[in-house]
Every structure is written in C-alpha cells, then in structure tokens.
Design a protein around this nucleic acid. Structure first.
Lengths: 342, 342
DNA sequence: CTGAAAGCGCTTACAG
DNA sequence: CTGAAAGCGCTTACAG
C-alpha cells in the first residue's frame, strides 16, 4: 500500500504531537485533550481523509477487532444461518468477521484457527459437528487452547469435546421427539437417511430416532438405514438406494432438511409423490425450505440465534470457562407427514 | 494478547539472529539461509509452536492477505452463493475473507469499505445492486477510489456505476429472454412482483420483461405490477396484494426466486395451486430452491462462478482498469410454467 | 493538558 | 551466507 495518510500527517497538519493526535482521535482511557486542539486534529483528519491503520493499532494495543469464524460451507443454508447470527451480533459490537470454509477437509479447522491466531482475532468461533476422529479433535483442541492461552476467546458450536465454551445442539433429544411424534401419528415402519457415518451430528440424530421407536415399543430395521453425504445430492442418492430395496415403510426420516428435499426429488423420479407415496421428515427447519410443497416436517433449531449466542458467550467477562450451553429443538409437524388412517 | 511466542524467541532458541530466523521461516525474495541454520530455526519454531504475528507482518510488508467482502445478507442464498465462490477462490490463493453484511442499511457499504481500508485488505469486493441514490453511490465510489489509491484492488458485482472492475449481471437481457420464452409458451396476460422500487437490479428485471412483451406485441398492465422487498415475505405479501385485485392473468413473474417461492405460498393460502391456478417464474436459479414443487422456471445466474471471478479479476496484474465483465443468464423452463393449451 | 520516546513483532535493504 | 539496525504506524506510560 502506498500513499496512505498517517497519523503523523494529521498531527503535522494540526500542529500537534503524535500523542495528542492519537488521543484526540480516540480519547479512550486517558481522554484529556483541550477542546481547541481536539477540533484542530479532527478537522485535519477529515481534510486528509485519514483512516487509521488497523494493523498498527493492533500492534500497539495487542489485540484486534475481528472474530474468526470457521464453518464447513457457507453455501449450505445451515451454516449461512449461523453465520448471519454471528455477523449480526459481531456488528452490534463493532467487530468484523473473518470467515473460512473448511469444505469438510480434515484438519482445515485447525489450520484456520491457526490463521486466526496469527491475526490475533479476539474471538474464534468454530461451527460444525465433531467427527469420530479423536486425533483430529485433539489437534483442534490444542490449537484452541493455544489461542486462548494468548488471550483470545473461543466458542464451539458442536458436540462438547473441545476445551472451550460450547453450544451443544440437542440432536438426540430433537430426533427422539420427532420419532415419537411420528409414531403418535400412526407410523410404525420407518426408514432413515442417516448422513455420513463419521459425523457425530448424524449419528446422534439416528440414535435419538432409534431411541424414540424403542420407547414406543418399535424398532428400526438396520436394512432401512442408508447413509450418505449431508447434502441435497446425498439425500437424493440415499433415497434411490433405499427405494431399490423396496422397503416396506410408511415414513422416512432424513437427518437434515437438505437431504430430505433431495429425498423427495428422488421419490418423484419414481412416481412416488410425497406424502402419499411415503411420508418424509427432516431436521433443522432451514428457512429457505419452509415453503417446499408439501411442507416438510422437521425439528426447528434456532440457528441464527445460536450464532449470535456464540458471540455473546465469547464477549462475556468474568465467568468460569469452559461452559456448555445446550440448545434444544422443537418438532414442527407439516404436511409431509400426515396422520396414518387407522 | 499475552504470552505469545515471538520470532525473537525462536531466534534465540536457534542461536541465530532475528534476520536469519525470519528468512528461514519465509525465505521469499532473498532466500539464502544455510541448510543447517534453517533446520535449527524450523525446529525451534516447531518446538515453541511459533505462530507469526500477522499484524507485524502486515506492518513490515505493507500489505495483508485478506479480502474484504461486503454483501447485503449472508442468510440470503443469492449472497451466500456468491460468497462461497469468493471464499473458494480466495482460499485457493491463500487469502482469508473478511465479510460484512450491510442488511441493506444505506451507507453501510461505504463504512465497511472504510473498515477494510483500515485493515489494509489487499482486495475489496462489493456485492449488491446499486440503488437510484446517486449521492450514496458517489460516496462509495470515493471510498473505493481512496482504497485503490492506497494500492488495494476493488471489484464490484453490481451495475457498472463504480470506478472499479465490475461484474455486471445482465438482468435486462435475462428477464427479456424469460419473457419471450413465457410468451412463446402461450402466455399473454402477465403480472410482475417487482421488488423494491429503488433497486436497480429489480427495475432492470422489470424493464427487460416489459421489453420482451412489447417485442412480441403485448404489454404489461401497470395495474399488474406490484412491488415489495426482495425477500420471501416480500413475495408473499406482494402476491396477496396482487390477488386482491383479482387480476386476469395466467402467469406471474417474481423478480427473484425467493420472492417467487413466497408468491407460491400466498397462492396456496387462497387455494390457487400452482401452476394450475397461475404459472409462476422467478430469477437467479437458487440452488437450494431447485427442488421446490412444482419446479420453478427461472433465469440461471452462475452466482458462485461470479464470486470466484471477482477474486480472479482483483488478482490479475498488468491490466488496464477498470474493466466491465458482463455475465448473462440462461432461461430454465420448469413445471411452474406449463404451456398454455391453444 | 501536552510531548518525547519506547515499544508492539516483523521484514528488508545495507554491510560484511 | 549472516547480522545489526532502521522502519512499518500506532498507543501509552512517563515526565513535565
């Protein structure tokens, strides 16, 4: 960068020292600059279109006004909803958000936290399911610990397996409530599109659903559980594989809404119109998908609120850490899962 | 931040000077450190878990490895798709992305570009329609010019009204092609849900659609054009207002997909099942909405590709600026607009 | 209330 | 190939 106006230029134009110029412009702790000088400085700064160098400020102050946010894929509406909450709350606190997409590459979270550390982010937020890879989780934990040891604040939105404040979504409970609700609608024979096998979020939802059925005295045929990526195409392919087995079921639970929508597309490919052909339920209550037809039964997770909460937790002072905040989901029954006539 | 390991610590542990440690760790321009010393330095850095201070590097180097991205709302799938492209391409070039949501607040773009300037972002990308507010556009133009004068690179995804490289989406052409295609399907009486009146993107789409009809010898009844926010609820409300007028039309064009989906919800509220009740078309081809039922006719815009292109334009050297890249859309006919029986 | 000066943690000519 | 030193643009004790 060249030609930028520095504090030095402002000070000279105003005929004051660097120190006075700095104080006039910020006047934080020891804010004591004569009215007259202050005005001279402000005028000079305006005339020169002075813009302070954030790096120099960071160097001198030893901290920064950015929050680093790591998530898997910003194009996925689950993550963009959380990101929206983070950005809203960050903006309200005068913080900028630096975002990184892991694209689910193993180790990427750790790399990005390292990058945020190098940038002296004041806050780091890591959003996304943990996996069953213990070693990877440990490396991330170490990096987060190093970040906090340097004075940063980290918050995870994930399973509570990291040594920092974490917001833990009750996947098990939500799926259990959903399973019970579907059972109460009269469904007895279920299938599940289970997401990637190594993702804890996916396995928790499957487990919760399974628990609901056994509570009600039913069970889930292992042959009716199909796994696949956490995406629209993942749901689409998984549903086709399920239907290839000609399963005798009345209702399929896809472990997230995006997969559920893919599943409905696959059903239609085969002339199975939902919900008549088969009832379908998802999880998350993605806003953009609230108008699909038939309306998708799901479990509402307050994603944006979770993002905002993450920032708030990070900014809270004088509390014992790490803390765990559990966030529950709420079953939303819609037209995709009608009552079974008895 | 406290307790962080500095280059100084690494140098001391390796028994070399600061300069040597720095060179061993980066070895960019004048990369000439003895193999033995280099190894000593690398080992010391690893042992100490050294993480360079990005601000100090930025200060010393006079530039930074971040791209600033301003957009209106990351929860809106239009913007999250563009953002995904920006992040992908930025990541491929070792750049971090700092993102800011304007929430369509007037003046916010200018404020954020100022923030990116203070942070010495090497690239700034501004995504979003210009409005008919000339003064606001001028202020943003000034800020972008100041940013580039300091050595930064800016790219706009918007109407070409800013003094920087811009990617201009052919809203007029896309809407015109869509209008002609719908006319060719046999539709003659149209309504338009026109988006916010001050947004150029909205008015360009309406104008293009109108142009198509007059080309074909038809016209758009002014009474059949309703405006409203660029959101799902905006489309929903606008459609209700339109239906209140009991318009004699066979097809409604919502100027973006999100509004179109809201419009379909409003129709269903009144027992008007699309497309039988009325044909519906949108614009953008939002990925998350490709499975709505009936499938939504729209104009496909390569949003992610546009985001990636923005980064690429910014990174190109030795070219005359500013440049304008026009990106066209492609009509995608789906079930929401069946042929009218003749 | 104001200023001279040290310091934040790096990089990079400039010498050797 | 290696090192001493200046400089990047701020902030903030420390004096006065």
């Amino acid at each position: 960068m060249t030609g930028s106006v520095t504090l030095h230029d402002v000070a000279r134009r105003a005929g004051v020292s660097l120190a006075t110029a700095s104080r006039a412009l910020n006047g934080s702790a020891n804010r004591v600059v004569g009215e007259q000088l202050r005005e001279r400085v402000l005028r000079a700064a305006a005339e020169l279109r002075y813009s302070p160098n954030a790096h120099a400020q960071a160097m001198a102050r030893g901290r920064t006004d950015v929050v680093g946010l790591s998530l898997h894929d910003i194009a996925d509406p689950y993550f963009s909803a959380v990101a929206a909450g983070v950005m809203r709350e960050a903006g309200a606190n005068g913080l900028l958000v630096t975002m990184a997409s892991t694209q689910r590459r193993p180790g990427a979270e750790t790399d990005y936290v390292g990058a945020f550390r190098r940038h002296w982010a004041s806050v780091v937020i890591v959003v996304g399911s943990r996996t069953d890879d213990r070693a990877a989780t440990d490396r991330l934990a170490d990096e987060l610990a190093a970040f906090e040891a340097e004075g940063g604040r980290a918050v995870a939105v994930s399973q509570p397996r990291l040594p920092v404040d974490t917001i833990s979504i009750d996947n098990h409970g939500g799926a259990r409530d959903l399973g019970e609700a579907l059972h109460d609608l009269g469904h007895r024979r279920f299938a599940v599109l289970g997401g990637p096998g190594d993702l804890l979020t996916a396995s928790e939802r499957v487990a919760g659903f399974r628990a609901a059925l056994s509570r009600r005295g039913g069970r889930l045929d292992p042959d009716h559980v199909v796994s696949g990526p956490f995406t629209r195409d993942g749901g689409y392919d998984a549903m086709h594989r399920l239907l290839d087995r000609e399963p005798d079921v009345t209702c399929v639970f896809a472990v997230n809404d995006v997969m559920a929508v893919g599943a409905m597309a696959a059903m239609r490919d085969r002339g199975l119109e939902p919900p008549a052909g088969m009832a379908v339920a998802g999880f998350d209550d993605i806003a953009t998908l609230r108008d699909v037809n038939p309306g998708l039964t799901t479990v509402r997770i307050p994603l944006e609120e979770i993002g905002a909460l993450a920032v708030r937790l990070a900014l809270e002072d004088d509390v014992a850490r790490p803390r765990v905040r559990r966030v529950g989901g709420e079953v939303v029954l819609r037209a995709s899962t009608p009552r079974v006539p008895s």
